[in-house]
């Protein structure tokens, strides 16, 4: 464990807590893409299949349970909670995310580290996580204005992957034979997808203006 990875994991946890806070505090999920939340739940379920077979550390197991539990709680909230689900922008959240699932799974069947069920689902979760934010970014552009908590949610989500890139660089230079090119490439693509959002987020913060994404 290094400081970059710890910072990345904590930033990731913060992003989920910000989202849960927004939903519970405002009893609203407007501006949040249910499709992105469903994709993240799928990412964690596919990635943590080894939850009960490989014990890495207490920290690792606890964080996996928190990520799976919180992502399912958000999806449940947006689908079933009678007050929250009313504010879901169903008509704006129209990204066909099934293509992202299918594409990631096909890619995982072709490009993986080992042809085992666990490794294929792991690669699938890595690829899917890289594109899971797309429905959310599309929804933000369509809904025009971004409320603070949703903007912070996307910002922390992008920052977490940027910290992971620093973690991979650190591990590459400190651990011999550390090769995780599936994560590296996918992580770079994922962070690049946030780049334009970061730009507009930073500009709005600098000009102290409300975050407006170009339609």
């Amino acid at each position: 464990m290094n400081i970059f990875r710890l910072a990345g994991d904590l930033t990731h946890l913060i992003s989920i807590l910000v989202l849960l806070l927004k939903i519970y505090a405002t009893k609203s999920c407007s501006g949040i893409s249910l499709k992105t939340q469903e994709l993240y739940a799928l990412v964690f379920l596919a990635r943590y299949l080894d939850l009960f077979t490989d014990f890495v550390s207490v920290y690792n197991t606890v964080m996996k349970l928190v990520f799976i539990g919180s992502s399912l709680a958000i999806v449940w909230c947006m689908r079933m909670h009678r007050i929250v689900k009313r504010s879901y922008n169903r008509e704006l959240d129209t990204f066909r995310h099934y293509f992202l699932v299918a594409g990631s799974f096909v890619l995982a069947l072709v490009v993986h580290e080992k042809f085992t069920l666990q490794e294929i689902f792991w690669a699938f979760s890595i690829y899917l996580e890289a594109v899971a934010i797309l429905p959310q970014l599309v929804l933000l552009q369509r809904s025009g204005n971004v409320d603070n908590l949703t903007g912070q949610y996307v910002f922390f989500l992008g920052a977490y992957r940027a910290f992971y890139i620093l973690n991979w660089i650190y591990r590459y230079f400190t651990e011999q034979r550390f090769g995780r090119w599936i994560s590296w490439i996918s992580g770079l693509v994922q962070t690049a997808l946030y780049a334009d959002f970061f730009y507009y987020y930073f500009m709005s913060w600098k000009n102290n203006a409300k975050l407006q994404l170009p339609a």
């Binding site: 890495v56 964080m63 992971y164 034979r177 090769g179 994560s183």
Partner: peptide, 10 residues
């Protein structure tokens, strides 16, 4: 090369 048999990252 992968330096461990399982994924130690989240």
């Amino acid at each position: 090369l992968v330096n461990e048999k399982y994924h130690d990252e989240l």
